Computed example of a mutant assay.
Amino acid sequence: MASDMNEILLQSVEVLPSLPDTISKLRKYIEESRSNLEINKIADIISSDPLMTTKLLRLANSPFYGFSREITSLNQVVSLLGIGNIINTIMADSIRDNFKIDVSPYGLNTKDFINKCSEETAFITDWLNEEDKKLSHFLVPCALILRLGIVIFSNFLIQNNKDAEFLEHLKKIDFRDLSLIENEFLGVDHISFLGFLLHRWNFDDILTETICFIRSPHAARNEVKKSAYALAVLDHLFMPHRNFSVFNVKASIALIEEAKTQGVKFNLDNFISKLPKQIREEIEKEKK
């Protein structure tokens, strides 16, 4: 069954939404200009799309980036975030907006799921903005699309009348291993499939690899290790059915400690200070 469904799933990729023309224009300009990029020119290309301009300014002023002052112009956005982050953010936001969200096949409340996705992205800023601002900004688009695989799989299962059966199988294992049931039904897990899509959509290599190595950050190349570990920590904290459980928080802390053995340093005290008060207190109790 999985191989048949996998084939249908791959065929469905052909009808997934295409990226905005603005992305193509930006990439063409970057390729032609190489090291002679001009902020004004980048801003002009984006401003030709009023809807995208509005979205980008809204995102720049959201808690996701944590800027201390209001961002009022595209020139400011480009200067503060950098061209690579601008493209990643535009692509992530555009793709996310193209999908109807109904995650009932996973036994999740759609409204709660959307709120949790926003909380995930905001946590990155709260955790890393002072410790590593560049990494924090890079991870925002990663977090924006981290759960996109679940959304796509949900839509696919509903369209193929497999949603109820899929949910029953998840219930049997108490939602403890999503990838097990995803592989059983679809022949691939949602993170691996998302990595495939990001490659197809021509996201930059660092972002794509960051998500692809979220389950094995130790195996990522050095340029990707820190972002992969950070996103892996986020993934553990906000597991769709068990976010911020003590077990998952401990697993996140273990990842931070493992990262240190790989030459990747995070401030553990800073991380713990950003956790919900109740979780912090439980961790402190266990230390005594």
Rank of each mutant, 00 (worst) to 15 (best):
L9Y: 00
L9H: 01
L9D: 10
S12M: 00
P17S: 14
S18E: 10
S18W: 00
P20M: 11
I23E: 07
I23P: 05
I30F: 13
I30L: 11
I30P: 06
E31A: 11
S35K: 15
N36G: 03
E38F: 09
K41T: 02
A43N: 10
A43M: 06
S47R: 12
L51A: 15
M52F: 11
M52P: 01
T54K: 14
R58P: 03
A60R: 00
A60Q: 07
N61K: 04
S62W: 11
S62H: 05
S62E: 13
F64E: 10
F67G: 04
T72V: 03
T72C: 04
S73V: 07
L74V: 03
V77I: 14
V77G: 01
S79W: 14
N85H: 13
I87Q: 07
T89K: 04
I90Y: 01
A92P: 05
S94G: 06
S94T: 04
I95T: 13
R96K: 10
D102T: 02
D102Q: 04
V103N: 13
S104L: 12
L108R: 13
F113H: 08
N115T: 14
S118E: 15
E119W: 07
A122T: 14
A122F: 15
F123V: 05
F123N: 02
I124L: 12
W127L: 07
L128P: 00
N129I: 13
E130A: 15
E131A: 14
D132M: 13
K134Y: 10
K134E: 08
K134H: 08
K134S: 08
P141Y: 09
L146Q: 13
L146N: 12
R147N: 09
G149F: 02
S154L: 12
N155L: 03
Q159T: 15
N160C: 08
K162F: 13
K162T: 09
E165T: 08
E165Q: 12
L178A: 06
L180D: 12
N183G: 06
E184M: 11
F185S: 07
F185E: 08
G187V: 01
H190C: 07
S192A: 13
G195D: 02
H199I: 15
W201H: 00
W201L: 01
N202M: 13
D205W: 06
I206L: 10
L207M: 09
E209Y: 02
C212T: 13
F213C: 11
P217G: 14
A220S: 07
V224H: 11
L231A: 09
A232T: 09
M239V: 05
P240K: 05
H241K: 00
N243T: 07
N243M: 03
F247S: 10
N248H: 06
V249A: 14
A251V: 15
A251C: 11
S252Q: 04
A254Q: 05
I256A: 02
E258P: 05
T261W: 01
G263N: 04
F266A: 01
S273N: 04
L275Q: 02
L275N: 01
E281L: 08
K285S: 04
K285D: 01
E286I: 10
K287Y: 00
